[in-house]
Design a protein around this nucleic acid. Structure first.
Lengths: 163, 163
DNA sequence: ATGACTGCAAATGTTTTGCAGGTTT
DNA sequence: AAACCTGCAAAACATTTGCAGTCAT
């Protein structure tokens, strides 16, 4: 496929082309927000991204972060997901094939999973009811290996930090 | 199993036992909200339920509806679901086995589906990653038979009315 | 210069909470 | 009386929007 670095470069270029095509402009703030988003793997909430951006530039406003999230979504660089905690969360989309999530209820860690058999059965299930399938969302909740071992002996960590 | 009427009666009894066990009380407002919720099949948002209750009693407040939704959830009469429209929605839980949703993106209609094969594969998938599975949420999005026929020729209906 | 972009604050929409008064036991 | 319940309004959140000033082209 492509190296990590090449992937990041491609993403920045895609974003710049996306906004140029619409007559928009590349700014310092947009570049910073894009960098912070691309640098962080995982599933960021707007507030978490805002926090990361703030560590580099105190003056950036929340609204700019929200506006960037919309732009990155439109450019197909970000995908909005729902991990069951009631917050909007965003993950990298470019170069990432479709996948579902397996989420630890204890520590909050979410990993990406795919199962071709399940995907096929989903199509079949929709067809059985006369529906044509255009997409789906599947989240599996459980305990990750680490948390299964620990049991319930120690205190829980903040799930929001590792989503 | 049991008749519709018996089911409703059982649900009311379950609720009354639930709050009695906690030292709470059955009131006119709670009875009304419970009735309106049980009468309406489907996936109600708090605002929709509030609207229904208002048609019977103008004086009931939103807060009481929200507080009842929490109580019904605690009594296992209601289950909170996420149908992808960003709103909290509640469906009947008592007497309803686990199921997933197949949602029409055009008219918003959501039907309940289950597939034992998929459920089994979800367990297997979680196990493959060392996770123990405690639950899941799966929503399939597509077009229902009616909307597939109509294509895109006519205007869309309000999805919120038939969720 | 023109039109986009920004931060701020205000507005939105949803859900929760504080409170004073009312009701049940 | 004690404890619960209610409606209302205010608060709490997450997100969007209006605006006046700033910046990119």
């Amino acid at each position: 496929m492509e190296s990590e670095a090449a992937g990041k470069k491609a993403e920045r270029q895609i974003f710049e082309e996306h906004i140029a095509a619409r007559g928009f402009r590349m700014t310092r703030q947009r570049g910073l927000i894009l960098d912070m988003f691309l640098k962080k793997e995982g599933h960021l909430s707007p507030e978490e991204l805002y926090g990361l951006v703030k560590t580099r530039d105190r003056t950036v406003g929340r609204a700019t972060v929200y506006r960037m999230l919309r732009l990155m979504k439109e450019a197909d660089l970000a995908r909005q997901v729902n991990l069951g905690d009631g917050l909007a969360r965003y993950e990298h989309k470019y170069g990432h094939a479709h996948h579902d999530h397996l989420i630890c209820l204890r520590c909050g860690k979410a990993i990406e999973v795919v199962d071709a058999e399940i995907e096929a059965l989903q199509e079949k299930l929709a067809g059985k009811h006369g529906y044509s399938l255009t997409g789906h969302q599947m989240d599996l909740f459980g305990l990750c290996p680490g948390c299964r071992e620990k049991g319930k002996m120690d205190s829980e960590r903040k799930a929001s930090e590792i989503r």
